[in-house]
């Protein structure tokens, strides 16, 4: 039996194609989302379209920290109640709300927008490192927390930035490596457990 070659209407096909380009969306999910969007009331789908358009039109990078914002400087850098002497350096804008949820850091942030990945051809010049150094020179900043991911690329990025900041005489720290809350020691890997033991604290 041969297929009759059914083809959806062009706008539907186009929508499926566009949704399929999103991360984590396979062809079936793209199709399901497209038909869902067709079914929902006009107002709801237009709100989604407007939200996407607004993100592209209004979002800028903060001139102080390179975080994604719609006002410059961003809310965090504009907040004088925050500790202006500490800057936490993160890889991606998504890391900022994650760290903010901890409530343990009241300083400012700087977003690198990536990580040094030599094998992928991503070098320091492709990241927002220059802006950070400019901001640190002659500033009142006392501590820079390098909160890159604890993997090879994150460590390489942190060491590179550390080497650049060292001559400025600013204290450079990084989050402790250790056991996740709620985990079992039995299942911890040797590398993490080793670091956790090295960084043990007085009880």
């Amino acid at each position: 039996m041969t297929s009759r070659g059914y083809k959806a209407a062009d706008p539907v096909t186009k929508l499926v194609e566009e949704l399929h380009k999103l991360p984590g969306i396979g062809p079936k999910s793209a199709q399901r989302l497209a038909y869902y969007l067709i079914r929902i009331p006009d107002g709801q789908s237009m709100e989604l379209a407007d939200a996407i358009a607004a993100v592209k039109q209004r979002i800028i990078l903060c001139s102080c920290c390179a975080n994604i914002t719609d006002i410059d400087p961003c809310d965090i850098w504009g907040d004088t109640a925050r500790d202006q002497t500490r800057i936490c350096v993160v890889e991606e804008p998504l890391d900022v709300p994650t760290l903010e949820r901890t409530g343990a850091f009241n300083g400012l942030y700087h977003v690198l927008h990536g990580v040094i990945a030599p094998m992928k051809g991503i070098g320091p010049d492709d990241l927002q490192i220059g802006g950070l150094l400019e901001r640190l020179k002659g500033s009142a900043v006392e501590e820079v927390v390098l909160a890159t991911n604890p993997n090879v690329e994150g460590e390489a990025t942190s060491m590179f930035i550390h080497n650049l900041i060292s001559p400025l005489g600013i204290r450079v720290t990084r989050p402790a490596r250790g056991l996740p809350v709620g985990g079992d020691i039995e299942f911890a890997d040797e590398v993490t457990l080793g670091r956790a033991l090295e960084g043990r604290q007085e009880f």
Partner: peptide, 13 residues
Amino acid sequence: IKSRKGGQLQPLT
């Protein structure tokens, strides 16, 4: 973050 494999499967290990 709680993966047992992640820390051990880093490049150069």
